[in-house]
């Protein structure tokens, strides 16, 4: 039996600032995890990644990241590394958490 597909988003780091960004439905990048466009199939995921990777003058190192959807279909990162990336370091109040 095929494993259930885990929803994915595309994330990268911003070329200029170096901070974490997420690919959105409008083909632009957001600093907010919630803005990310969600891939529901592997085909969608690969297509999104390919599109994202075309913006090399804006980003560094795009990749797919697993998410889970709550009842309102809002995506949160699954892996703890991605949770930290979406939040910032735990030793100082720096990075993304300052804008949340």
């Amino acid at each position: 039996m095929a494993r259930k597909f885990i929803e994915k988003i595309v994330t990268a780091n911003d070329l200029l600032q170096g901070d974490v960004i997420y690919f959105t439905k409008d083909n632009i990048w957001s600093r907010n995890h919630q803005d990310a466009i969600i891939a529901h199939t592997i085909e969608q995921a690969n297509e999104l990644l390919e599109k994202a990777e075309q913006q090399q003058d804006r980003i560094v190192g795009a990749y797919l990241s697993d998410v889970f959807l709550d009842e309102a279909q809002i995506a949160s990162p699954l892996h703890f590394r991605e949770i930290f990336r979406a939040r910032g370091p735990s030793n100082y109040f720096h990075g993304k958490q300052t804008n949340i």
């Binding site: 600032q17 170096g18 974490v20 560094v60 930290f84 370091p89």
Partner: peptide, 14 residues
Amino acid sequence: LRLMNGLYLQLHAY
């Protein structure tokens, strides 16, 4: 080239 000059990309920033 950036690595030659000590510049890495980490999780949240360079």
